[in-house]
């Protein structure tokens, strides 16, 4: 086996170990499930409101979007955050000091983040099925659509996370990204259909991948009649593939460049410098 193939296999092992660590650790699991649980509670309280122009529950309509939001949080944002944290504690430098270690590290990271993102989507779905009416999960086509939308969504989102994690030097500064992400979640129509938003805001929302991920998930889980509540009254699968595909291509082109540049700067004194800074902060 070639050294790179060996490293990819080690990366598979790494992904599994890290995934296992985060699903067996209470704190990690809580951070994966915190936001969707809060959102589900809020939406449960609002379940008697209806989607404009239909008799369908607004709460039920929001479930796919909430799950999409969780994919963004646990895929993209958490990947970025763990990259900055791994730079602070020296995990990344360790990978750099190991032959083909970066290949193994990134393979493992992408896998473990994918794993937690899928868990973050499926686990909240269980209570949602019991709390909300109208979700159509009995169809095979629902699960097929869910699968391809999720895969494409992750391929679009994870490279963005890697770029963000490379650009921000410390976990603290990475925290600043959470704020605009929350804003983006709001205007991507997760909680309320964007057809009710002003025109320009609709265009902004449609430029980002979350809107399309959520739209794709709605098309998978909701009755087809609800397409009427969407922009241009359709699930727009073709456009979903197009926009998410564009983000994926852009991300996959950009991420290796940014990652390489970031990794090149890593050294013992860089890690030590950040450690000193972190210590000053806590004192």
């Amino acid at each position: 086996m070639s050294p790179r193939a060996v490293a990819v296999r080690a990366g598979l092992q790494r992904g599994w170990i890290e995934f296992r660590q985060s699903v067996t650790n209470g704190q990690d699991l809580w951070s994966v499930l915190f936001f969707p649980i809060i959102a589900l509670i809020v939406m449960f309280l609002l379940r008697n409101n209806t989607v404009p122009g239909t008799g369908f529950s607004l709460g039920s309509q929001s479930i796919p979007g909430i799950l999409g939001m969780n994919v963004v949080l646990n895929g993209m944002l958490a990947l970025g955050l763990s990259l900055t944290m791994d730079r602070e504690d020296g995990t990344l430098l360790r990978a750099k000091a190991t032959p083909n270690g970066m290949v193994g590290y990134l393979t493992g990271k992408v896998l473990s983040r994918t794993g937690t993102a899928v868990v973050g989507l499926l686990v909240p779905l269980v209570p949602a099925v019991f709390l909300f009416d109208g979700l159509e999960l009995g169809r095979v086509s629902s699960w097929l659509t869910l699968a391809w939308v999720l895969v494409l969504g992750l391929v679009a989102l994870l490279p963005i996370g890697a770029v963000l994690g490379s650009l921000f030097n410390t976990a603290q500064s990475m925290g600043f990204v959470s704020l605009p992400t929350m804003l983006l979640i709001g205007l991507s129509g997760v909680f309320y259909p964007i057809s009710a938003f002003p025109d320009w805001l609709q265009w902004v929302a449609q430029a980002f991948p979350l809107y399309w991920l959520a739209l794709g998930l709605r098309s998978a889980m909701l009755p087809d009649a609800l397409a009427a509540a969407e922009l241009s009254e359709s699930w727009r699968h073709l456009e979903t593939v197009g926009v998410l595909g564009l983000w994926a291509v852009a991300g996959l082109l950009l991420a290796p460049v940014v990652l390489r540049r970031m990794a090149r700067r890593e050294s013992g004194s860089a890690v030590e410098g950040r450690r000193q800074k972190a210590m000053q902060r806590t004192m």
């Binding site: 050294p3 504690d89 020296g90 430098l93 360790r94 000091a97 032959p99 013992g268 030590e272």
Partner: peptide, 17 residues
């Protein structure tokens, strides 16, 4: 990477994994 494989590095500030 083959060169890298022949080096061992122990730094002070590792708190990884």
């Amino acid at each position: 990477e083959a060169w890298r494989a022949r080096l061992g590095i122990v730094l002070q500030s590792w708190r990884d994994h």
